[in-house]
Structure formats: structure tokens, C-alpha cells
Write a protein that binds this DNA or RNA. Structure first.
Lengths: 192, 192
DNA sequence: GTCTATAGGTGGATAGAC
DNA sequence: GTCTATCCACCTATAGAC
């Protein structure tokens, strides 16, 4: 999903806003920033997204759609549970490689300041991630390819927490290798 | 360190600003917020902290001092490495119990928007944490009380990432038990 | 769909009286 | 050390012409 210059304005707005949230946070950019970058006026942005809260809500929705599609692609291409987990971590690594934080991880930090509608969408994103991971974990344990104690849902939460946290710290240290090291250690700990 | 109403103004400012950063982020509060809560004017705040960047720098410095003191207290009270790690995680749990995020974890998310001076102080905080954890891990492995592969410094980074991430997600789900579950799992994975 | 113009508010910050 | 008063830049958002 590159920000093609020929794309409809509403999509160019979303693409740019997405990057801004991922790098600076929802409270770290303004309509003026987007307008200047796209060469349009603020008023024009308000035509497409009347309120910033609405823009934020749509950003989460689109991000989640793309994420779900990526998870489905993993399911199609890969059979082994451990490899599915590696690909899951690779999604995060790909985002970090663009010097971005996970959109929803960033928003989780700003949670208390977000409009209610955005808070709700955020929860949904993480729930979806948890459910997918828990299913893969369960499947892997059954197949004796993965080994862990306790509920799959709890391991799923550990994975999400650790990957999001590692992404955040790798970004602030300007050192993506930190993320990879954490991700590989997590996967290694799960291999049977 | 409760925000005693009788404390000097500069300390009351720091106490309140700290809580605001931990709950709303550095870009999520203003001098006006503090002024209103303390019953003073914005001009008075600027007397104590001429610029917000300076206030932010001092916040990190004080937070780090307190953190270092807490780590020293652990060393005094506890001998077993695994128990030291548990107490380390308990510091995080204590912060979360006040419905706050780790000050520096919050700032790490906002990293790209922070003044350079704050960015530097932030790195120092995490480096200090890493060094302390790495030493405890090394000590524990030598004593055969802890078991892990690879460099202690890398495990230290995993612990910090995971605890910060778990804190962030627990807060946005309004569910502190999520944090405890992650913390206990991390400790369990390290026990020999 | 995009523009000009502007409203109404808040941001951080300063001057100068007390 | 705290106040009043004020500056100016920026914020989100709207009205109305093209």
C-alpha cells in the first residue's frame, strides 16, 4: 500500500495520516501537517474527514483490515504453527523497517486521550490479534511443534505485549536489531 | 512520594506533571492543566520551569533517580537473583496499580516528538535498567538459579520490552491482571 | 472537491507590577 | 514567588464562493 500520488485524495490523506500517527502519535500531528504535505488546504481535508476523531477511527479500521488480510495470507501460505508465528513477527519487523511504530501500539500509549470511538476500535484490533495467535498456539501445541504451559490466550498476550514493547524501544534506540533479537528469543522459547 | 499539598511548589508541579505524562503523555497535557489543578497561574509555572522541555528533562531525571534508588533497595533486601527479578517486575506493577504507565515507556512512544535533551535522558534510563538486569541475570545463571541462553544483555532487553509493552496494553484494556500474568510467565521461563 | 477566509479556542512563553 | 495582561503561533472546525 504505497502512497501513490495518483490515488484518490481520501486515500492519500489516510496513507499520510497513518504514517504520521505511526511516527509521531495521534496527538503529534495536525491537519495543517497533512495539508502542507499533500499540497491542499485544511478545508479540503475536512471535506473528506470532517473531524480528526473520524479520521482516527477510519485509520484503525483500515489498519485492522490490512492486518487481518495479512494473517489470512499467512494461513494460506504456511502450514507449520511455528512458522506462522515467525511470519506474524515479520509483519511487525516490516513496519519497523519503515521506521514506524505499530499504529495500534502507538495509540495504546495515547489511549487515555483518545476519543471513545477510537478506544473501542483499538480493543477490537488487539482482541483479533489475540484470537488468531491463540488459535495458532493451540494448534502448535496439539501438533507437538510448540511447547508452553497454561492458556494459549495468555501466551498470545505475552507475544503481543513483548513485540509491541520491543518495537517501541527499538524505535527509540534507532536500532531495529533489538527487535529481531527479542522476536527470535520469543519464538525460540516456544519451539518444542 | 505522595503529592503532599504542603510541599514546595516546584515539587508539587513535578508530582502533578509526572502523573500527567504517565497517564496522558508529554504531548497530552499543558501548563494550563497543571495551573488549574494546583490553583496557580501559568506564569507562576514558568517561573519554576521556564520551558516545557526543561520540565520534561527534570521529570526524567527525577524518575530515574527514584528508580535507581529502588534497585539499590532491592539489592539490600534480597539476595536471590530470581527474587530480585520479581521485585523488579513489582516496581512496574506498583506504577500500574496507580493507573499509570511507566514514565519512560510513555515517553518512548512519543520519542520522535521529544526535545533532544529529553531523548538523551531517556536512553540513559533504559541503559541503566539494562545494565542492572544484565548483572542480576548473569549472577543468577552463575548460581544456577536462572537458566537462559545467550547474552544477559539480550534477555534484559526482552524483559524491559515485555514489561513495558504489557503495561501499556494492560492499561488500555483497564485490566492489571494482564500485566501480572505476563510478568509471572516471564519469570517462570527464567527459573532454572 | 477544492478554495479563501475566518471563527473560537488553546498552545507555550514573556513583561512587568506587587 | 505569584500575579495580571498580553503575544503570537497553532489548533480544529465551519461558511460560503467557485
Amino acid at each position: 500500500m504505497p502512497d501513490s500520488a495518483a490515488a484518490p485524495t481520501s486515500q492519500r490523506i489516510l496513507d499520510l495520516a497513518e504514517r504520521l500517527v505511526q511516527t509521531r502519535g495521534f496527538n503529534g500531528f495536525s491537519y495543517a501537517d497533512i495539508a502542507a504535505s499533500l499540497g491542499v488546504t485544511k478545508a479540503s481535508l475536512h471535506y473528506h474527514f470532517p473531524a480528526k476523531a473520524e479520521l482516527g477511527r477510519r485509520l484503525i479500521g483500515r489498519y485492522e483490515e490490512n492486518f487481518v488480510a495479512a494473517l489470512a495470507a499467512i494461513e494460506r501460505k504456511v502450514k507449520r504453527p511455528l512458522e506462522k508465528l515467525r511470519r506474524y513477527a515479520a509483519i511487525y519487523a516490516g513496519v519497523l523497517a519503515q521506521d514506524r511504530m505499530c499504529l495500534c501500539g502507538m495509540l495504546a500509549a495515547e489511549y487515555a486521550t483518545l476519543p471513545k470511538a477510537m478506544q473501542k476500535e483499538l480493543q477490537h484490533f488487539f482482541d483479533e490479534n489475540e484470537r488468531w495467535l491463540a488459535r495458532v498456539l493451540e494448534e502448535g501445541r496439539r501438533a507437538r511443534e510448540l511447547d508452553f504451559s497454561g492458556a494459549p490466550r495468555e501466551v498470545a498476550r505475552l507475544l503481543i505485549s513483548s513485540l509491541e514493547g520491543a518495537m517501541m524501544l527499538a524505535r527509540s534506540h534507532g536500532d531495529a536489531t533489538r527487535f529481531r533479537a527479542v522476536a527470535e528469543r520469543l519464538m525460540g522459547d516456544l519451539a518444542a
